[in-house]
Amino acid sequence: MLKITSRTLRSMAMPATLALTATMALSAGAHAQDKTFLIGIVEQQLANPFFAKLQQAGVDAAKKHGLETMTAESSVAGDSATQVAAIENMINRGVKGIVLDPANASALVKIVQKARDAGIIVVTTNTSLEPATAADASYETDNLAAGELIGKWAKARLGSTPARIAMLDYDLSDKTAKARHDGFLNGFGIAEGAPEIAGTALTQANVETGQSSMENLLSAHPDINAVYTINEPAAQGAFLAIKRAKKDIALTSIDGSCSGVRSVADGTIGATVMQFPTNMGTLAVEAIVTAVNGGAKPSGINNSGTILITDNPVDGIESKDSKWGLENCWGE
């Protein structure tokens, strides 16, 4: 499962500002009719700790404002039907805002339109609809920016050594996978098909396929010295192959799960980019509260944060160490 999000200064400042605005709005409008209302939160399958964290953050943020929430989640990956039914129910129940983590970018456009026609503010999290303007706004990881961070780090780490890169991808028709892939190449400063790319392989974003893909690539190109991986399980698999081949390779990844950050701490992964499901859920609910209470309506695609986590920082790229990472990671 891909988990997709910079805790830059900007995004750290944003929740604080939003919270402040919302608190002011609440206290100023204590007698306003929108003092309490219902918010719907539609997630993807909660067995994935990323989605569970996102939903919990949304519920907590709503609770902070004394608001009730109504939650629903898809049963398996890509299950948009359950989400459509959930949104229909939420429209009937008269929610004022919906936080949606769409299981499918196009399948939910119609029902979201219906909700917005009914005057409901719909904010997507984690990933946006196609087109993104189908919802009021989106709070998600800028995966292109995330890829660029590890691309730049790998480039700096190699220094003057000629690069031999392995790309461990996930299905590139997946928006997130493509953005991360393109971002890495941008950050490294090379184009698709550049001679620096020794080989690419398609993984299923898990340990097992990360391992066998890396074994095959290393067998074909023993000179590989930098690796991009779609997510941390794939990186952990790649490391098993690298360890067996006894190579010193700059291994990079994206996600910021606690397991991934531990791999940074023990030297398995050179650098990873953390994304922030908690920010997504909190920012989305705050935006809805502000808008419902007469404040500005949210708009656009907003980066919920991307931060480079590494214990080998390089000049010119802002990063945090694995200790900070362990305090801010998500999942197990």
Partner: peptide
């Protein structure tokens, strides 16, 4: 065999 190859019991492995 799978644990010997990849020493991790991962519910997302071996999907196909």
């Amino acid at each position: 065999q799978a644990l010997g190859r990849t020493p991790i019991a991962d519910p997302s492995g071996y999907q196909i």
